[in-house]
Design a protein around this nucleic acid. Structure first.
Length: 508
DNA sequence: GATTAGGAACTGC
DNA sequence: GCAGTTCCTAATC
């Protein structure tokens, strides 16, 4: 195994977005391309303001964020004002979008796999860049009742201070020591960092991804670790601290972990795409031949710098379908720790290529999860009925039983569960034009204007989701109209039948 | 007739 | 208390 140089750092604040909504479990945030394209940063107020929910903003100037506003969603491609990025030539990438609430069992599996996939040591750590300091401001959409772009933001500074180079490692290469100083008034933590593994992983990502996304991988890894590590934001705003332990088995709010899941899945997806292209294999492990299985395992070994497996062909004679059925213990038995990691990686691939991935992470941009399956040849062409009636396939979940019952509770009947807001549901439909384009579609996505083409169908779908067989468009539209008062939707400038408009930022 | 708009009571969580 | 749901009347397209 490689020698790991260690890096000590003290955590400070970091950027986090806090979409304000009354229900953090159900925040849907789909593609924000339009938002990124259209939103004028100059409209934003000064930083350090806290986005408020419609209700809290209406009621009073809330002194602090309530627990309801624990960040449930980190917005994909949210514009980030980077005053001093660590590499001027690199684009800072925000955390991918996430959305639906459901598939909690998958979540537990995924979290376990993420722990393995990212080799999450007791303290998963960021790999600071070479620049000394950066100051990032993230402007989260704020579900304010008005449409005056009354967005707020947090400015959270994170400073990296390079320390003198460490003694050379076994290869003679100096190892970076880095200290991140916290501000005096913040809680500080000192943690040991395995920076080389992170760097090697990110370099591996870059090598495998021949597109410009390779420039983004290091940030993704860093963001993932920072999100996992940082609790200063929650403490500052009296939110529930998010501990890694909670991710692995004790989290209670789905919203707590969605950003991490989505981010990691995005990263996994990117890795997988590159490997698929490189090895000329299907993204679906179950379709692999035995030879492809071996090629993939070798690739994974190389990717994660795992010990080589002797007599690989003998130890893993299965094809992809059979391999997918092997348990973690079996992998471990055959290949020790390397086997465990390979199993973890395989689970991520399986999840990433499944429809559950897209449903777990929510509809996405062409770069997002849906695009992943589409790009790699998986048909998503499912009829409305099939889509709506389809039960999510059950993924193997060795650790699911240890999860809190709240997360093991299966959503009532379909993906997304019944605890979804109407506006979220509508956006869900809008985000799947291939499935629901005949029922509802965007007229002007950047403005959040959409049209219900088939009111009966939309109402039917909504009724199914909410287990309200008597739902009809009259009732549904009444609910939509309730959103007028709440600032979630508004009447269109020129009244048109069956045309509604989301208020900013619900249109994002 | 279908849709829009909104009041009011009610339900489920 | 919130987020709808249900029922209703009236207006508009």
């Amino acid at each position: 195994m490689m020698d790991y140089d260690k890096m000590y750092f003290t955590k400070t604040e970091m950027s986090q977005t806090v979409p304000a909504s009354g229900n953090n479990n159900n925040i849907l945030q789909y593609s924000t391309d339009a938002y990124a394209d259209s939103f004028d940063l100059s409209l934003l107020p000064s930083d350090s303001e806290v986005p408020l929910s419609p209700q809290s903003e209406l009621n009073a100037q809330s002194p602090q964020i309530s627990l309801d506003y624990i960040p449930a969603t980190i917005y994909h491609d949210v514009p980030m004002k980077v005053e001093k990025p660590w590499n001027e030539n690199e684009s800072i990438r925000s955390v991918p979008d996430v959305s639906n609430d459901h598939q909690q069992q998958q979540t537990s599996v995924l979290l376990q796999q993420l722990q393995k996939h990212y080799q999450l040591y007791p303290s998963p750590l960021p790999s600071p860049p070479q620049e000394n300091c950066f100051n990032t401001t993230v402007y989260p959409p704020s579900p304010c009742p008005s449409i005056d772009h009354n967005l707020t933001s947090f400015t959270i500074k994170q400073e990296y201070h390079n320390l003198p180079p460490s003694p050379p490692d076994s290869n003679g290469a100096p190892s970076p020591y880095c200290e991140i100083k916290s501000e005096p008034d913040t809680d500080s933590e000192t943690t040991l960092i395995d920076i080389n593994s992170l760097l090697e992983k990110t370099l591996s990502d870059c090598e495998q991804d021949q597109k410009c996304t390779q420039q983004q991988a290091p940030q993704d890894h860093q963001l993932l670790r920072e999100y996992l590590q940082d609790t200063s934001f929650q403490k500052k705003h009296n939110l529930k601290p998010l501990a890694l332990e909670s991710l692995i088995g004790g989290f209670g709010e789905r919203g707590d972990i969605e950003p991490f899941i989505s981010l990691a899945l995005e990263d996994a997806k990117r890795d997988a795409q590159a490997i698929c292209a490189s090895l000329q294999i299907s993204p679906d492990p179950k379709q692999w031949t035995t030879a492809q299985v071996h090629a993939w395992i070798r690739s994974t070994i190389e990717q994660f710098k795992l010990p080589p497996i002797e007599e690989l062909e003998m130890k893993f004679p299965e094809d992809g379908a059979a391999l997918s059925c092997l348990t973690q213990d079996e992998f471990h038995r055959r290949a020790s720790e390397a086997g465990t990691t390979i199993h973890a990686q395989l689970e991520i691939w399986k999840l990433a290529c499944s429809d559950n991935f897209s449903s777990l992470s929510g509809p996405s941009t062409s770069q997002g999860t849906s695009g992943w399956t589409a790009e790699l040849g998986h048909s998503a062409d499912i009829s409305d009925d099939e889509d709506e009636d389809m039960e999510p396939p059950q993924l193997p979940s060795p650790g699911a039983s240890s999860l809190p019952s709240t997360l093991n509770t299966k959503p009532s009947g379909r993906t997304g569960g019944s605890h979804i807001h109407l506006w979220q549901f509508l956006k869900e439909l809008l985000a799947s034009p291939q499935h629901h384009g005949t029922a509802i579609r965007w007229l002007d996505r950047s403005k959040g204007v959409f049209k219900i083409e088939d009111s009966v169908r939309v109402a039917k779908l909504w009724g199914r989701r909410k287990n309200r067989p008597a739902m009809n468009y009259d009732k549904l539209s009444r609910s939509i109209r309730q959103y007028y008062k709440k600032g979630i939707m508004k009447k269109t400038e020129r009244s048109q039948r069956l045309v509604y408009q989301f208020c900013h930022p619900y249109n994002l």
